[in-house]
Each structure stands twice: as structure tokens, then as C-alpha cells.
């Protein structure tokens, strides 16, 4: 394959144009990465608040009473699987397969929506039982931390829906590919944050009994 191409046939301009376009895309994606890292700092502060306040239950129920570990595990697995299927969507997009990309984004959306549904059901159960954010410092910090994550998931779901429509309309080209890469970074990032919510809020909460 390494046969020399006569210099006349090498379109230097075309090569340079490709490189320039890729560099521009990389800068945009890097900028988005920097945003994600500042978001990490936001979550870091919320984790600090939660850890400081976790024992301030003010006579109300603590994590060991409220949280159900199997329930949290199902939430975790659905989000983790959606992160994987989002990766499969990126792979399909790299292969320029529009159908498969749309299919995997739909799967990702459904798994993400399942996760959000489970989370909101849990919130509803707590609030209906009189354990809303008014109850104690522990619950305030719990709702702030997990709620902020849920808000990100909601935005991610909207983004996935819009992206899917965009792919259906425009197909897979340089522009959609760039956006797909940023969306996948966002979605994987939310799963990374959830690792720590699962460990620190739910698993550590069970040990505090």
C-alpha cells in the first residue's frame, strides 16, 4: 500500500484543508472538555457539602434507612449500559452508518430515560414520606447533589433527542460528527460522576448504619 504517489497526483491543498478542518474541530471539542472539567469542580463542591452534612439528620432518617441498595444498583447499571451504547453510536457514526447511529442513540435515550424515571420515582417516594429537602441538612445536600446530576441527565436526554433528529435530517458529515463527539463526552462524563454518587451516597450510606 505504500507505493509512492507521483507528486502531481497528491492534492496538497486538499490534505492541508483536511488537516485544518480537523484542527478546528479539535479546538472546539477541547473547549467543551474544559467546560466538563469545570463542571467536575461544581460536583466536587457538592460532594464536599454532602460528606460534611451526611450525619446531620436532625432526628430524621439517615441514608441507611432511606436508600435501597438493589434499587441504586439498577439505576447504576442502566446508566452504565447507556454510556456503553452511546459509545457504540459514536463507532457507528465513524463508520458513517446513519441507521445504526440513530438506533444506538435511541437505545441510549431509552436507557437514560429509564435511569431518570427511577431517580424521580425515588425522589417522589422520599418526598411523599415527609423526607424532602426541608427535613434535614443531610437531605438538603442529598437532593442538591443527586438533583444536580439528574438535571444534567435531563439536559443530556434533550440533547440526544435533538441530535438524533439532526442526524436523520442532515446525515453524518463533519459537522454532525463533531457534535456527536461532544455529546458522547457529555454522556460518558455523567456516568463518571455517577460512579462517585453510587459509592459515596449509596454504598457508604449503607455502611453508616
Amino acid at each position: 500500500m505504500s507505493d509512492l504517489v507521483p507528486s502531481a497526483q497528491v492534492d496538497v491543498k486538499e490534505v492541508n484543508r483536511l488537516i485544518e478542518r480537523n484542527d478546528e474541530d479539535n479546538t472546539t471539542i477541547f473547549g467543551f472538555w474544559v467546560y466538563l472539567m469545570t463542571d467536575c469542580v461544581l460536583f466536587g463542591s457538592l460532594f464536599a457539602v454532602f460528606t460534611v452534612l451526611r450525619n446531620n439528620t436532625f432526628g430524621g432518617p439517615g441514608g441507611a434507612v432511606l436508600f435501597s441498595l438493589p434499587y441504586a444498583l439498577i439505576e447504576t447499571l442502566s446508566l452504565l449500559t447507556s454510556s456503553f451504547t452511546c459509545g457504540l453510536a459514536v463507532l457507528s457514526a465513524q463508520r458513517k452508518s446513519k441507521k445504526q447511529t440513530v438506533f444506538w442513540f435511541v437505545v441510549t435515550f431509552l436507557l437514560g430515560a429509564t435511569f431518570l424515571g427511577l431517580e424521580l420515582t425515588e425522589f417522589h417516594k422520599f418526598i411523599a414520606g415527609g423526607n424532602s429537602w426541608h427535613r434535614s441538612g443531610f437531605l438538603s445536600s442529598y437532593f442538591a447533589l443527586v438533583g444536580t446530576h439528574g438535571l444534567h441527565i435531563t439536559i443530556g436526554l434533550i440533547w440526544i433527542a435533538v441530535m438524533t433528529g439532526f442526524i436523520l435530517k442532515r446525515g453524518i458529515n463533519g459537522l454532525t460528527m463533531k457534535r456527536i463527539r461532544m455529546l458522547s463526552l457529555f454522556w460518558h462524563f455523567l456516568d463518571v460522576v455517577w460512579i462517585f454518587i453510587f459509592t459515596i451516597v449509596y454504598l457508604f450510606g449503607a455502611l453508616h448504619a
Binding site: M1, V5, I19, N22, Q94, R181
Partner: peptide
């Protein structure tokens, strides 16, 4: 630029591409 081979061009372009994901 006369020493450019088709392989070289691929490498040159891919170095400026966002990281390519693999199934593995």
C-alpha cells in the same frame, strides 16, 4: 512534498483527527 505516499498522507491527517474510538 514529493516523498508523500498515500500511507503518509493518512497518518498525517489522522494525527490531526480527534481520537478515534474503537470497539475494543
Amino acid at each position: 512534498m514529493s516523498s508523500l505516499t498515500s500511507e503518509n498522507i493518512d497518518i498525517l491527517v489522522s494525527q490531526h483527527q480527534p481520537e478515534n474510538a474503537t470497539l475494543k
